[in-house]
């Protein structure tokens, strides 16, 4: 008998009588931009309102004056990134500007699907990360977030704020391994 068969047989023998799977209600909640903004700022993210979407490029450059290597889908890039881009090139990226699908007000997370990442490692390997989000695309809670997703495709992240750690004496440090900062540009 293979381990698979052995394990499944033991599970079948030992599992209890079937109990019902509950339906999960929606619970409603606050899906306002204010709430999303306040929560994201509370976890170390930055939110920038872009009044004129045509000037996004300019606003981003203004905020990251020292970013030399910029990988981007939504603004003009200085380096082209594709799934085939070599690691050394990825490692040199200062700023990645990517399109977020929607935000979650209760926790400041933004859904970033693999398809929007240029390269799957880009959002974490880049020193800084900016996500562009339409201000209408906010849901209240994770229940609504998963309902909106329907399927998760190949790879995707709910990304809430910059990379952080508190592993040394519970002192919060921003910029562990992933992006040192996260800015959400609302258009």
């Amino acid at each position: 008998m293979t381990s698979r068969e052995k394990i499944l047989a033991a599970v079948r023998a030992n599992q209890p009588y079937e109990t019902p799977l509950p339906d999960v209600p929606d619970f409603g909640g606050d899906s306002s931009l204010d709430r999303f903004t306040a929560v994201l700022q509370g976890i170390g993210g930055q939110v920038v309102e872009v009044a004129d979407a045509a000037r996004l490029d300019e606003v981003v450059r203004h905020l990251y004056p020292t970013a030399r290597t910029v990988a981007a889908e939504v603004i003009s890039a200085t380096v082209a990134v594709t799934p085939e881009t070599p690691i050394e090139t990825l490692a040199a990226v200062d700023l990645a500007v990517l399109r977020g699908e929607f935000g979650v007000a209760e926790n400041g997370a933004v859904w970033l699907p693999g398809a929007n990442m240029l390269h799957r490692a880009l959002p974490v390997v880049s020193q800084h990360l900016a996500l562009v989000l339409r201000r209408a695309d906010i849901v209240a809670t994770m229940h609504q977030a998963y309902a909106r997703l329907g399927s998760v495709d190949s790879y995707g992240i709910f990304l809430a704020g910059p990379s952080k750690t508190a592993d040394i004496e519970q002192s919060l440090v921003i910029g562990a391994h992933g992006a040192r900062s996260l800015t959400v540009f609302l258009v």
Partner: peptide, 18 residues
């Protein structure tokens, strides 16, 4: 766990990259 509203990265791995 920590009182955060969610972890920074909630990552869904479904298919390997090409």
């Amino acid at each position: 766990a920590t009182g955060q509203p969610v972890t920074t990265y909630t990552s869904h791995f479904t298919r390997p990259a090409e």
